Simulated scan of single mutants.
Amino acid sequence: MYQVQRVSRSEFVPIRHLDYHVRLWGEPVPGQAPLVLVHGWMDVAASYQFVVDALSHDRHVIAPDWRGYGLTAGSPTDNYWFPDYLADLDFLLDHYAGSQPVDLVGHSMGGNVVMFYAGVRPERIRRLVNLEGFGMPATRPAQAPGRYARWIDELKSLHRGEMALKAYDGPDGVARRLMKTNPRLKQDQADWLAGHWARPNAGGQWEILGDAAHKIVNAQLFRVDEVLELYRRISAPTLVVEASDNSLDQWWQGKYSLAEFHERLAAVPDLRRALIEDAGHMLHHDQPQALARLLEGFLDAA
């Protein structure tokens, strides 16, 4: 089993009618910005443990489980809306940071959240890091009727039980699933993550701590013009980190490319990019030491 170096503690914070689970490492340091880490789709806050352990010095780290993930219960609805993540984050920063700007890091879906949030609340961010948060392919207005129809059809599929997440006989099965998704994940890491990524149900089956409703397509189209306006309002120095293994080609089959994402990044006023070698999309699992050094170099720079 993976040996944790820095032990976290859990808190539950009332946020917008939900008991939000937040994982914390370290204590607040006067004059030092809190480090806020937000996870991606079908992930949990504990996923950052390997990077926190790899930091060369203690930081006050705040990592929430997004609504419907980990130990944060899902909202009383049958689907999720991206703006809710922005509002949830704002309420969480009110609670933990007040008016103090934070260092904000997001992975994958969380990387998209932090980029949008930094355009909405630029004054709240001291430094911004996007880990493999690429956004989505551009859409056209003509796609709207089909998108709404697909959204309704998927809601019906969810209610018929056709979108349920697979359960596993035990944590070993969960660990195998994690390693199948990410072949670079080490056995000890997978064994440790399994206990945070899933829990046994009343029947003894291990269920993923993620609401199946997250699988439903967003009813609204992804508007690149809106994204670029948000990017232009980011005032914090911004670091975009990519893995050496490009996942976009596999995900989008030519509908969206890394080159298109880089074109969008030209709208960010103060941008730098970095590459983590020998890593895939879950680069915080694949190369936690390299990522920790990169983060510290950026966050601690004058």
Rank of each mutant, 00 (worst) to 15 (best):
Q250H: 13
E296R: 04
L265Q: 11
S247V: 10
H107N: 08
H214T: 14
A54F: 04
L294Y: 05
R233T: 08
W151L: 11
P269S: 11
D211R: 03
A54W: 02
G195Q: 15
H39S: 04
A292T: 03
E207F: 00
N201P: 00
L209G: 03
S244C: 03
V44I: 15
V44Q: 13
A267I: 13
L295C: 08
G135N: 03
Y148V: 14
L155I: 15
G133C: 06
V240G: 03
G74L: 04
Y80V: 07
Q220D: 05
F222K: 00
L193W: 11
R184C: 06
A302W: 08
S56V: 01
P237D: 12
V174K: 04
D88Y: 07
D19R: 15
Q289I: 05
A212K: 08
P237M: 00
H285C: 08
R16S: 05
R59K: 04
I208D: 07
I62P: 02
S8D: 07
N218Q: 08
I15C: 04
S235Y: 00
W151R: 15
E123P: 06
A97S: 12
H281C: 01
P101G: 04
W66Q: 06
D88V: 11
A259T: 13
L93G: 03
H107F: 09
K166L: 12
G204C: 07
I152L: 15
G98N: 06
